[in-house]
Each structure stands twice: as C-alpha cells, then as structure tokens.
Simulated assay, not measured.
Amino acid sequence: MSDNTTDRFLGYLNWLFNPFHGLQTTEVYDLIGTSSLTEHALYLNLGYWRDADTIDEASEELALLVAKRGGMAPGDTVLDCGYGFGDQDILWARNIKPEKIIGLNITKSQVERARMHVADAGLGKSVNLREGSATEMPIENESVDLVVSVESAFHYRTREDFFREAFRVLRPGGRLVTADILPTENSDNLFRRIEQWISWNLVAGKFNIPHENYYLTPSYSNKLSNAGFINIDIASIRNDVYKPLHEYLSVNRTFVGKLHPLAKILAQLTLDRSAESVYCGLDYILSYAEKP
C-alpha cells in the first residue's frame, strides 16, 4: 500500500469513527465512488416515493418532480448544479427535451464518468457537463432559463452564494428549483430535541454540510428573497423521502455491497436503526423561486 493510499485509508477510517472529523465534499463522493443507491442506474438522490416502489423509480420521480416544479420545457437552457453522474440530465434530455442542459460539478471523478455516460447515451450535443463551482459559476449573465440543484445545495459554501450566482445567470422570468436538506424545527421535548441534534450533526459532519447552511425554512425563504427572487414557495416533502427510502433499503441491501468497505459499515449501522431515529433531525424541501 503506497503512502498516499495509506493516508487516504486512515483519513476515511477517522471519518467513520471520529464524530468530530469530516471530509471535503469531493472526498465524500470519491469515497462513495461510482456506487449509488439505485440498482440499474447511478442516481445519487434519495428519491421521491409517493408513487414509487423501487429506488430506481423513486430517483427518477424526484428528478421529474424537480423538472415539473421548475416548468422545464423544450427550448429552455437548463443549468444543473451538482449533477452527480448525469442520470437526471439524460432523463430530462430524453423525456422533456430542453434545448440545452449545462452541468456544473466539482468532483472530478463524477465529471469524467458523467461525460462518458452522456456520450454513451448519444446526447453530447444537448448536454454539456462541466467541472465547475455552483458558487462561482463560469456562466454568462442572464443566459439560463432554469437553474436546478438536486440534493447538492446543502454542500455549497455557502448556499447564499449559490442563490446570488443563480440569480445572476438567470434571465428575467427564470426559475430556481432545489431539492434540499435542512434541519427540522426543534421539538418541545428535551429528549427529542437531543435526538434531533444528534441526527442533524451526524449527517452534517459526515457529508460536509457547513454550519453556515444550518437554518430552517423561513430563513431559507428570506435568503432567496435577499438574493432578489420573488414568488418563493417552499414545501416539505420529507414524509415522501426518508421513511419509505429507509424501509426499502432495510429490506433491499444490495447497494451496500457496492460501497467502499468503510462506507459499507456506516450504511449497515444506519439501516439497523429506525427511520424515525436516523432522520428525525432532517427536513427535506422542494424550493421554487423566480427572477423578476
């Protein structure tokens, strides 16, 4: 084992067992590698389970829900921030056919795999996946109709910078849609509040959610408004995400075998606990906003 490999392994080991040690976002997703929760695709989202029976269906349903909420349509230029392996972009290109989809992602290993994925699908002309930051977008002013972020905005340093950049690149009348993770409102019960605190901080620590992004829905709305957005609408869909996902994965654990050995330990420990305990500190929102 080389020195670099040893250092990386020890870093991952520290990440798993040390509650005060986190990883950078790119390190988290390099650890996950090309594994995903899905069985037949490479989606990394948690899924929208209202009318879905499998993780593949739920992951597609979430991508389609985001597209529908944003009014994605033929002729649109879409900017997808944090596109993972590009599965949702392929889905949108095939089913909705926007004129162009541009993607930004900072994890190089995902960028390379996603580009191959798009090329294999024959969609290289309409889907342009780039390596770049959602908080410093290499995108021209007022050149995009729809900005979307599916389960990635909580990583950004900071989400407010992302809102400002999204506002800058959107044309007048453009829309911003996020599927995002926030903390839940604190319970009046002290023991429940402690459980919520543990739930949030474990997730925030392991998956690099900066403290600057720790706030509730009213603050989320205010920050969108401060960035210049109007017609803001934020809905919690947590009941159609966490519990059904947990129930499905507790029975169908095939994805666990695809994970890095250390990530596998964390997944198994999580699935052995109840959904109510694991996710009690996490809200899940679908957010919509418009540029005047």
Score class of each variant (00 low, 15 high):
F162M: 04
L249W: 05
V148R: 03
L10R: 14
L282T: 01
L286Y: 02
V150L: 14
N252R: 15
G103R: 00
A204S: 14
N128E: 14
W200T: 04
A121S: 13
P218G: 05
P218M: 02
T5D: 13
I96S: 05
L262A: 09
T178W: 03
R157C: 03
A179W: 10
V203M: 15
E60L: 06
N213C: 02
D120L: 05
V241W: 07
A204H: 00
W200F: 13
R193Q: 15
N4A: 12
A41D: 15
Y48F: 15
S152N: 14
E276P: 07
Y279A: 03
P261R: 10
N141M: 07
T5Q: 14
D161P: 03
T178H: 12
S199I: 06
L176A: 07
R175H: 09
F167S: 04
S126F: 00
I237R: 08
P19N: 09
R171W: 00
D240K: 09
P292R: 06
L202Y: 11
A289W: 00
N189D: 15
Y242P: 04
T158M: 10
R175F: 03
L79F: 07
S219F: 00
N186Y: 11
E276K: 11
G86F: 09
S133W: 02
I194P: 00
G124L: 12
P183T: 06
S187N: 14
A179I: 02
Y156I: 03
D80Q: 01
G257F: 08
G132S: 06
D188A: 13
Y214M: 07
N231I: 00
D283T: 06
F163T: 01
F191L: 15
I234P: 03
L282I: 02
Y156R: 02
A153R: 04
G228E: 06
F167K: 06
I198T: 09
L44K: 07
R159L: 04
V278N: 10
D80C: 03
Q196C: 05
F9N: 02
D283P: 06
T54A: 11
E165L: 07
P244S: 08
N105A: 02
G124Y: 09
E57V: 05
L62I: 01
R193D: 12
S143T: 10
R94V: 00
V177N: 08
V118F: 08
I237V: 15
D76M: 12
S59F: 00
S2Y: 01
V278I: 13
Y156V: 01
L216A: 10
G82T: 09
A289Y: 00
A235T: 08
D145S: 08
H155R: 07
D89N: 15
S59C: 15
V241K: 07
L46F: 11
E136Q: 12
T54S: 15
I209M: 14
V150E: 02
P292A: 11
D7Q: 15
W197A: 13
